[in-house]
Design a protein around this nucleic acid. Structure first.
Length: 423
RNA sequence: GGAGGAAUGGCAGAGUGGUCGAUUGCGGCAGUCUUGAAAACUGUUGAGGGUAACACCUCCGGGGGUUCGAAUCCCUCUUCCUCCGCCA
C-alpha cells in the first residue's frame, strides 16, 4: 500500500512511474489526495469539538468535587450539542478514511526507476545469461514423458485423488524432490538465512498484509468454514511473522528461509504450456525472505540474485535473468528479477525463481517498522525470492540431464539422493 | 466440546469512574566515571493523526454501549492460561 504523505509530495513522479505499468493513475491519485484533505479537515473539526467537551468534563469533575452540584448540572447541558456534532463528524471522518483506503488498496507499487516500460512478458529485459545448453539427440523427450517412462510422477493418480494439477511423486521421483528441498534449505541456511517451518494456511489479516487480499482473492484456495486461505507461497506466512512489529535498527537485516507447498487456483489456462510440471495447483517451493533497512534493500536484492545464481551454477542448469517490465511486474513489487531455466526438450524458458523488492509497500500494510539510528520509526523494506521453486527445476533436470542410459543426477544432488542415475 | 481466569507501552508488570497516556523494572538512547569497555550513577525514552512549530485529538486485545467523564462498568468477538472431555 502506498503512503498518502508520499503521494501528496510526489504526485507527478508517481503518475509517471505508474504509467510504466500501463496505468493512468492521475484520477485515482488525485482522488486519494482529495479524500485525504477531507479526512484531515474533518479530523481537525472533530478534534476541536472533542477538545471543548473534554474541557467541560474536567470542569464538571471539579464542580462535583467542590460540591457545586447545580453548576455542574447546568454545565452538563452544554455538552449535549457537542456530543451530537462529534458523532456526526466521526461518521464523516470514517467514510472519508474508508474511501481513501479503498482507493489506496487498488493502487499497485511504484516501479523502481530501472524498470523498463512495457505491456507484457515480451518487453522484459534479459540482463544475464549463463550455462551451456546441452545438445540432445532426436529421441529427447519432454519431462512429462520422461516422468512416465521412469515412473517418477503420476499425474493420473493425482487426478483420481484430488484433481488436475495435483501430481503424485513416486519412488526416485519423490526422493529427488526431497533431495532438492533439503539441498535448497542447506544452501540457504549456509548463506545465513534462518530456517522456518510455518503454517500452510493463513488468516485474512495475513493475506492482506502481503498484498494477496483483496487483490488476488480468487487465486487462493479459501477454506470458508474457518475463513482461512491456503498459502500461495511461503512469502505470506513468513513475512507475516513480523506483522505489526517495531524492530530495532540493530535487528536488521532479518533473513528467513522456509519450505512449504504452495497452492494456486490459477483458473482458466490449459494447453501445451501447462502440461506436466509447467503449471500446477499444488507445488513445492523453498522461499527466502529478507527484512531490510531501506538504505540496504537494493544491495540486498543484488545479493539475493547472486545467491540464486549460485544455486543454478551448482545444478549446472542453463538459465537467464530477466528484469520485469512495468506491465509484467507484480502488484506489490517495485523491482523483480525472474530466473528462467532453459528446458531443452520443450525448447522454451521456464520461470523457476522470482526475486523482488517490495520497498515499503508490504511494510505499510503490515505496519512493520523499525527504530532508526535517530530514534525515529520508519517502515522497513521487505524482499523475497524463490530459492527455488521445485517443479520446473525438476523439469529442467529431467530434460537437460537425459541420456540414452537414463537421467543423470547433478553432482551436487547425488549425496542427497543416494543415487546418480535414474534408469 | 464443557467450566473458570486473563489480555495494559519494545518486553515484564502496577493501576477498578475525574490532572492516567498511565507507577515501576528491564531494554534503548545520552551523559558522568574509564585508555576503552563492563559495572555503577544521572538524565531521557510509547504509538498514530495534526501543525511551519506549538496547541489539540485518538489509542490500555478488536467492535459496540452506559456516562458530562471509561484502562477501570455493561454487551459481544478474538486470543491466551488452568481444569475436564476427545484425539495424532
Amino acid at each position: 500500500m502506498l503512503q498518502v504523505t508520499e503521494i501528496r509530495e510526489h504526485k507527478e513522479e508517481y503518475i509517471k512511474a505508474l504509467a510504466k505499468r500501463g496505468l493512468d493513475s492521475k484520477a485515482d491519485l488525485e482522488a486519494v489526495i482529495r479524500a485525504d484533505e477531507v479526512r484531515r479537515s474533518t479530523q481537525a473539526e472533530l478534534d476541536e469539538t472533542l477538545s471543548q467537551s473534554n474541557k467541560y468534563s474536567k470542569e464538571i469533575g471539579m464542580l462535583f468535587k467542590n460540591g457545586e452540584v447545580d453548576k455542574a448540572n447546568a454545565m452538563k447541558e452544554k455538552t449535549v450539542e457537542l456530543k451530537e456534532s462529534s458523532k456526526k463528524l466521526q461518521d464523516q471522518l470514517n467514510s472519508a478514511v474508508e474511501e481513501m483506503e479503498q482507493l489506496l488498496h487498488n493502487l499497485p507499487n511504484i516501479p523502481h526507476q530501472s524498470v523498463p516500460a512495457g505491456t507484457d512478458e515480451n518487453d522484459n529485459e534479459v540482463v544475464f545469461e549463463e550455462g551451456d545448453i546441452p545438445v540432445l539427440g532426436e529421441q529427447a523427450l519432454p519431462h512429462w514423458e520422461l516422468a512416465k517412462k521412469y515412473d517418477l510422477i503420476d499425474f493420473e493418480l493425482g487426478v483420481k485423488v484430488t484433481g488436475a494439477g495435483f501430481p503424485v511423486y513416486k519412488g526416485k521421483g519423490a526422493k529427488l524432490q526431497r533431495a532438492l528441498i533439503t539441498y535448497f534449505l542447506d544452501k540457504n541456511t549456509e548463506a545465513g538465512y534462518t530456517e522456518y517451518q510455518v503454517p500452510h494456511m493463513v488468516n485474512e489479516a495475513s493475506g492482506f498484509g502481503t498484498g494477496q487480499l483483496p487483490d488476488k482473492e480468487g487465486q487462493m484456495y479459501h477454506v470458508t468454514g474457518d475463513n482461512l486461505y491456503l498459502i500461495p507461497t511461503a512469502e505470506v506466512p513468513v513475512t507475516n511473522l513480523f506483522r505489526g512489529d517495531l524492530l530495532m535498527h540493530s535487528d536488521l537485516p532479518i533473513t528467513c528461509t522456509g519450505y512449504t507447498p504452495c497452492f494456486r487456483r490459477e483458473a482458466g489456462s490449459y494447453g501445451a504450456h501447462v502440461r506436466g510440471l509447467n503449471r500446477l495447483h499444488q507445488f513445492d517451493k523453498v522461499e527466502i525472505v529478507r527484512i531490510e533497512h531501506p538504505e540496504n534493500s537494493y544491495a540486498a536484492l543484488d545479493g539475493m540474485v547472486e545467491h540464486v545464481k549460485s544455486i543454478l551454477r551448482d545444478l549446472k542448469l542453463p538459465y537467464r535473468i530477466l528484469r520485469l517490465c512495468g506491465g509484467d511486474l507484480g502488484f506489490t513489487s517495485a523491482l523483480t528479477y525472474d530466473f528462467e531455466v532453459f528446458s531443452t526438450a520443450q525448447d522454451r524458458w521456464l520461470e523457476i525463481s522470482s526475486v523482488s523488492n517490495f520497498e515499503t509497500f508490504q511494510a505499510n500494510r503490515l505496519k512493520l517498522r523499525f527504530k532508526d539510528q535517530d530514534g525515529k520509526n520508519q517502515l522497513v523494506h521487505t524482499l523475497n525470492g524463490s530459492a527455488l521453486a521445485l517443479p520446473r527445476v525438476l523439469a529442467g533436470i529431467l530434460e537437460n540431464y537425459q541420456t540414452p542410459d537414463g537421467i543423470r543426477i547433478p553432482d551436487i544432488l547425488v549425496p542427497y539422493c543416494g543415487f546418480d542415475l535414474i534408469s
